[in-house]
């Protein structure tokens, strides 16, 4: 009887799970197989080559640095703005405006960053016209730089609206009376945030975070436009290995992508079990 009960609950999940399993599961299996076969032989050579490859090691560190930085800064700015502004952000038209950056592909935002912030970009021209810049070579290097400033700022520029849209409903729904309780008990603003807001936004925020993290780590367009020659993001390396030359480096491309996938999946499982525990705690505390 209990089993029936459980299957009844779970039935509506079947199409979604089945879909992901058939399409994505199979595709990942294929990618995995491609990474461990060379000319029909089973081998881990591709992984060995990767780990011995200096550009790959530099690249994975660089990618993680860029990805973590853009993810955390986007989340931070998004939370600060929403927290401060949620009352005004509820307006329908303001929401529509925040949606607008979501309409453009990341590539376009990257392109705008180049047109605005490169050494011969619009801001450099503006400073020159204002007499604050002698020549464009004196303008700071913000695009195609080796620290990933261009990549990071494009992602922040693009993801902050996303973060706002994701956590805005949580702030609007939040029971703001709890805040008064903490306040009357003499709690500081930080304590209000820590005890009332953080437990409620954390699950949503971590989900948004993992989506941004995964996207930035594996997307190709923005680093292609704004990245430096060395070190390259892992996505660019795998793209190059995938398409270039005589295709003999494909196993390496697949291996690199499998490694990236594993990093993302492990992070997300850890985060999900954390948030689920928290969710249960929150809902128990409320009832």
């Amino acid at each position: 009887m209990k089993w029936f009960k459980q299957t009844k609950y779970v039935w509506p999940l079947v199409p979604a799970v089945l879909f992901v399993f058939i399409f994505v599961g199979y595709a990942i299996m294929m990618a995995l197989l491609e990474s461990i076969t060379i000319n029909g032989q089973w081998t881990l050579d591709a992984y060995k080559q990767l780990l011995e490859n200096q550009s790959f090691r530099d690249s994975i560190l660089f990618s993680l640095k860029v990805t973590l930085t853009s993810t955390f800064i986007s989340l931070f700015i998004g939370v600060v703005i929403t927290r401060w502004m949620y009352y005004y952000l509820r307006n329908y038209w303001v929401k529509v405006l925040i949606w607008i950056p979501m309409l453009f592909p990341h590539f376009v935002w990257g392109y705008i960053v180049i047109l605005l912030f490169s050494q011969s970009g619009w801001f450099s021209g503006l400073l020159y016209e204002l007499g604050l810049l002698e020549d464009f070579t004196h303008f700071p290097v913000l695009t195609q730089d080796q620290h990933g400033i261009g990549i990071i700022s494009t992602y922040i520029f693009k993801e902050v609206p996303f973060v706002i849209l994701i956590i805005l409903p949580v702030y609007i729904q939040m029971n703001h009376q709890y805040k008064h309780v903490v306040q009357t008990l003499g709690g500081s603003k930080w304590e209000i945030f820590k005890t009332v807001e953080w437990p409620t936004i954390f699950p949503v925020l971590s989900e948004a975070g993992i989506i941004i993290f995964a996207f930035v780590l594996s997307a190709f367009e923005v680093p292609f436009l704004l990245g430096a020659t060395y070190p390259k993001m892992v996505s660019i390396l795998s793209y190059d290995w995938f398409f270039q030359g005589d295709w003999s480096q494909r196993p390496m491309a697949f291996a690199a992508m499998i490694i990236v996938t594993s990093i993302i999946v492990i992070c997300s499982i850890v985060l999900f079990s954390m948030t689920n525990r928290l969710r249960i705690r929150v809902s128990k505390g409320e009832r």
């Binding site: 199979y26 795998s238 992508m257 997300s268």
Partner: peptide
């Protein structure tokens, strides 16, 4: 986590399988 998979993995990795 499983249902989130499709947006967590690199597109190039699954394009062929799909």
């Amino acid at each position: 986590a499983f249902l989130l998979m499709p947006i967590l993995i690199p597109g190039l990795a699954v394009a062929m399988g799909l």
